[in-house]
């Protein structure tokens, strides 16, 4: 199924460097409408105030973690169908299982490469 690369993408990470890296990698695969949030609370406010076709979030953030953000998104009637990719250094099986049980669409472990990011986005959104 084709997907629209002009969709709004929300990237969430407490490391500004990481936000910059992901934004640039997304730009290279022609996702140009990218918004940023530095933690789950800010992300949730942006999600509730806008329209996003994809969420890419880190896990380890305060005060609201990526897992809590995922749980909030899945519990929100308007947001629950939004594809959610976790990009995190949390690579323990218990983390992956917890994310899957919370409804994560895909899971990328840091450090990651551009190919993995593109592959997971295509898997989540469907090939265009």
């Amino acid at each position: 199924m084709p997907f629209d690369r002009s969709m709004n993408v929300l990237i969430v990470d407490d490391y500004k460097t990481m936000l910059r890296i992901i934004r640039n990698l997304l730009k290279q695969i022609e996702f140009n409408n990218v918004e940023e949030a530095s933690d789950g609370t800010e992300a949730l406010a942006k999600l509730r105030g806008g329209s996003f076709g994809l969420i890419i979030s880190d896990w380890n953030m305060v005060p609201m973690t990526g897992l809590q953000l995922l749980q909030e998104v899945r519990a929100d009637a308007r947001l629950k169908a939004t594809p959610f990719i976790m990009i995190t250094a949390e690579s323990k099986a218990e983390n992956v299982v917890a994310a899957k049980q919370a409804g994560v669409s895909n899971y990328i472990v840091k450090p990651f490469n551009a190919e993995t990011l593109r592959d997971k986005i295509e898997k989540v959104l469907g090939h265009d």
Partner: peptide
């Protein structure tokens, strides 16, 4: 440049 972006993610990992 994509390879440089990938390599720069070291800063996040080392920071953590």
């Amino acid at each position: 440049t994509a390879q440089i972006y990938e390599a720069c993610s070291f800063q996040d990992i080392t920071g953590q």
